[in-house]
Design a protein around this nucleic acid. Sequence first.
DNA 1: GTGGTCTAGACCACG
DNA 2: GTGGTCTAGACCACA
Lengths: 128, 128, 128, 128
Amino acid sequence: MFQLDIRSRVPIYEQLVEKFKELIINEVLKADEQLPSVRQLAKDLTVNPNTIQKAYRELEHQGYIYSVPGKGNFVTPPSAINKEEKVKKMKEELLKLLAEALFLGVEKEEIISLIEEAERTVKGGEKS
Amino acid sequence: MFQLDIRSRVPIYEQLVEKFKELIINEVLKADEQLPSVRQLAKDLTVNPNTIQKAYRELEHQGYIYSVPGKGNFVTPPSAINKEEKVKKMKEELLKLLAEALFLGVEKEEIISLIEEAERTVKGGEKS
Amino acid sequence: MFQLDIRSRVPIYEQLVEKFKELIINEVLKADEQLPSVRQLAKDLTVNPNTIQKAYRELEHQGYIYSVPGKGNFVTPPSAINKEEKVKKMKEELLKLLAEALFLGVEKEEIISLIEEAERTVKGGEKS
Amino acid sequence: MFQLDIRSRVPIYEQLVEKFKELIINEVLKADEQLPSVRQLAKDLTVNPNTIQKAYRELEHQGYIYSVPGKGNFVTPPSAINKEEKVKKMKEELLKLLAEALFLGVEKEEIISLIEEAERTVKGGEKS
DNA sequence: GTGGTCTAGACCACG
DNA sequence: GTGGTCTAGACCACA
């Protein structure tokens, strides 16, 4: 299910966060869908349960999932994500990255085609 | 000369690497120019010499400078730097960020205006 | 009758306790009135009977209801409920929250207008 | 230094978060002051280092402290705390608590005197 | 020395 | 069964 790079400099739990965000953004995991249980995923990935916990907790902090103790972890419906603050940070980050890309000689047209590519992967998540 | 953010999460040596890369790409530091000596820079920035050493080693590893034992560290000519790999990573990162932005409801038009804003900040620094 | 938030972090039994306390303080449930039976309520709310039991036991512990074995659970007359302790805790909590608000730069006037807003929502429910 | 209630229902790390927030709000811990090291505090409180870590991490998430790996954890200057979002949540919480207090028969005057008491403990933190 | 991550394994609350 | 917390102890990166 996941490909973790155990040797990478980026922590396992952070890799997990990224993977899950991707799945949620691309709606592979749909609203209110249940995520794999902490123990099960830990077993599948041969990682310690604490590490999974940490990833889930971080995802919850970022608003992408919510946790119901005794029940499981579930995907937050996009409409319920607190966007304002997140969008602001996102724009700053985007601006920085765009400047860097232009600086390295990436053409404006290339970036626009990247936007279109991104649109295709998201499709339908921007309604709310 | 440098503004280091001691508070930042990103390690000092990495901040140094970024700064030097900027100076090199902008040709503030010209081809084959000698970099400040480890000891001198460490003194100027009130940073541990080990930290400077680490930054220089990393710059060398990434191909931005070359080291001549007993002489010092020198700038690799920009034409010799391999940008391809960096551009590729940048595009991947951009794609991910763009998808996230669209997911959070940022309009395509907004992103395009961000590109234009980014263009303005870069203009003038991209002589190389 | 009840709106339970299955998603919430606060346990269902605790939500039940809060709801019942509200109904009792508001005298929607009058003194010595009988509460719904554990089985019936569990069925109505599609909740595990154990959960209802736990809520009732907790309400009894806090003094809001009393249980007559073989008969059912009944509302303690409001006059017999000890509010003092609760008011004390409430004040401590308020003090903490007020300090935090002031620290974050909320103006005193804003807080007073919040009090007035709160007054309006309570008006009409405080017959007891 | 701290009084932890090991038997309490509220987790140790959360108790720590509350204590530290209090110390920061009341300016016992001043801006950019260093917090006790994870290991040291763990030893002093005879708690596992991981638990301290968790508390510090949470405080960082909430914006009250910042962490510099290899250096330590430091108090965020009030001016640098991202307040907007926090203030919004705070007001909601305050409103709820105020309504509950009024409901329980706490007088408006009492609340206002609580504000004044809170003001005295904070004194000077609301400038920015 | 510092913080950050991770494993191994335990116990609790909840439904 | 689920998530949440905690201990014990290890290793790494950084300054």
